[in-house]
């Protein structure tokens, strides 16, 4: 099944424990252990329900849905930071998540130090980052401030630095979560061109975005999540039409 597929979801469900989000702390556990444990087990919320999906190698899939529909959970499952509660997932290939703004950057370190840090965290060897660092800096167009701590960077500059590191990884599967909504128009165009390059190289890509026009231009297929379930997978225009219908209706 995985021969031509990069990602396969087989009847995947994911529930989050509500207890983890409550402030309860240890007090209730110590004072009323029975009730606290029962409470922990019972309070679960479904975030994905019975999702089956296959993404072919080299394909790019857009994921759309309202806030809270389960889009980010889907990406986290592909990235392997959480496990499904039910069903199974097969991911064949090296996954690179395109991090949200500045995640993994340390504000006190310089842009250059942060490139090293981020590059290694995202799976490169130190030597590989060193080989690519000049290219990364050039791509980011941040030559002038690269040796300043990133806390003085503007939001747009952080986004550029983050994307530039990601653009120089060798992913087999690229995950893009809303990252493209930042930066000025010129840099956005550059990002989209870079993603096009990845696609041309046969990198499997999964996008999550609210920018439907952008998505339409970038994806081969789209998946529509409605209330934690996979409502539709297939033609991008059709998925967008259904999504809009659902919103107005």
């Amino acid at each position: 099944m995985t021969g031509t597929n990069a990602i396969v979801f087989d009847r995947v469900g994911k529930t989050y424990s509500l207890a983890l989000h409550r402030a309860g702390g240890m007090k209730s556990l110590l004072l009323q252990p029975r009730r606290a444990l029962a409470h922990m087990r019972s309070g679960r919320r479904q975030v994905l329900d019975d999702v089956s999906l296959a993404v072919r190698r080299g394909e790019s899939l857009g994921v759309i849905g309202r806030n809270g529909a389960g889009k980010s959970t889907l990406l986290a499952l592909i990235a392997g930071v959480i496990r499904p509660s039910t069903g199974s997932i097969v991911v064949a290939g090296r996954v690179s998540p395109l991090l949200e703004l500045g995640a993994g950057f340390h504000p006190e370190l310089t842009g250059r130090d942060n490139i090293m840090l981020n590059g290694v965290l995202l799976g490169l060897r130190r030597a590989e980052v060193r080989e690519r660092i000049e290219q990364i800096i050039a791509f980011s167009e941040l030559e002038e401030s690269i040796d300043e701590p990133v806390r003085v960077y503007s939001t747009g500059m952080l986004a550029r630095l983050g994307f530039s590191v990601a653009a120089h990884l060798d992913p087999e599967i690229l995950l893009v979560d809303e990252t493209l909504a930042v930066g000025d128009a010129a840099f956005q165009a550059k990002c989209i061109a870079k993603i096009g390059e990845f696609r041309a190289r046969g990198v499997t890509t999964v996008f999550v975005s609210h920018n439907l026009e952008q998505l339409a231009g970038l994806c081969d297929r789209a998946a529509l999540l409605v209330a934690h379930r996979l409502e539709y997978v297939g033609d991008v225009a059709e998925a967008i039409a259904r999504y809009r219908e659902g919103r107005s209706g």
């Binding site: 930071v81 993994g104 799976g123």
Partner: peptide, 9 residues
């Protein structure tokens, strides 16, 4: 948290 939530390392 941002790393732990996004990257599987």
């Amino acid at each position: 948290a941002p790393l732990v939530k996004k990257i599987a390392f």
